[in-house]
């Protein structure tokens, strides 16, 4: 079987400053994968490099054994919430419908079928009643759920999510987490940029530790170790403490 995702030798640089450096990574099975690393470690850039949104200084990315440009329909993407203008004159349903655009191709307009699917996806993330709301009136958590519903509407095989749990309330975080698990159980791969070390062992089966270079990638139980974390974060004690706490909690379960 072709590997799900094959990142070979990828370097991304802005001028001479490397953001990703010689990243080699192969994922074979669809899993719930967390991408973890300190600020400026290139987590978002890794997603963007995979999706072809930033130019690569070297290397290549293959998805299901083929270049990503040929696999667009199998990809779902959740950008960071700050990346769009929330004053834009669209309502929640419109945003979710955008998820179906990729499959429609040029010129065709979304029809009844797409609308029904968009509503269904909104229901899945628990904001079905907000369909007609203008997006600027949503809370942070609701905005994030809208983005998730849009990704669901893409009906993808691989989902890339950039900090979906940043700045959302606890209820939303739980809802997102449940949803991600459902996706995983349906055999989809989900790559999530995550910033909260404490919840990593609880949320993800597989972790990618990144600090410009790939520090480690593998099942959470094997890779999410204090030694690897030290290599990722350096000597920032507070971070290590919270991670240690998480590890203890995970092993106590």
């Amino acid at each position: 079987m072709e590997p799900l995702l094959d990142i070979h030798d990828v370097t991304v640089a802005y001028h001479r400053r490397p953001v990703l450096w010689d990243v080699d990574l192969t994922l074979t099975e669809p899993r719930l994968i967390g991408i973890v690393g300190p600020n400026g470690a290139g987590k978002s850039t890794l997603l963007k490099a995979i999706l072809g949104l930033v130019p690569l200084a070297s290397g290549e990315v293959r998805l299901f054994g083929r270049p990503v440009a040929e696999q667009r329909r199998r990809i779902g993407y959740v950008p960071q919430r700050e990346s769009v203008d929330w004053d834009f004159p669209v309502n929640v349903l419109d945003v979710v419908l955008m998820g179906t655009y990729g499959r429609l191709g040029w010129f065709r307009r979304p029809g009844r079928k797409e609308r029904a699917r968009a509503r269904e996806c909104l229901g899945k993330v628990g904001i079905g009643e907000l369909a007609q709301r203008q997006i600027g009136q949503l809370s942070g958590g609701q905005q994030q759920r809208t983005f998730l519903a849009r990704a669901l509407a893409q009906q993808a095989d691989v989902y890339f999510m950039d900090e979906p749990m940043a700045g959302v309330d606890a209820a939303t975080e739980r809802a997102i987490f449940t949803l991600l698990h459902e996706l995983r159980d349906q055999g989809k791969a989900v790559l999530v940029v995550h910033h909260d070390l404490r919840t990593v062992p609880q949320y993800f089966d597989h972790v990618i530790l990144l600090n410009m270079r790939l520090v480690a990638s593998g099942p959470t139980t094997e890779v999410f170790t204090p030694d690897n974390l030290r290599k990722t974060y350096g000597g920032r004690l507070s971070v290590l403490d919270s991670a240690g706490e998480a590890l203890r909690a995970a092993s106590g379960d």
Binding site: T11, A13, P18, M212
Partner: peptide, 14 residues
């Protein structure tokens, strides 16, 4: 980059 991970982002230069 692994030993001094916290310094890395500022100094790295290809």
């Amino acid at each position: 980059l692994t030993e001094y991970a916290d310094l890395a982002a500022g100094t790295a230069n290809l």
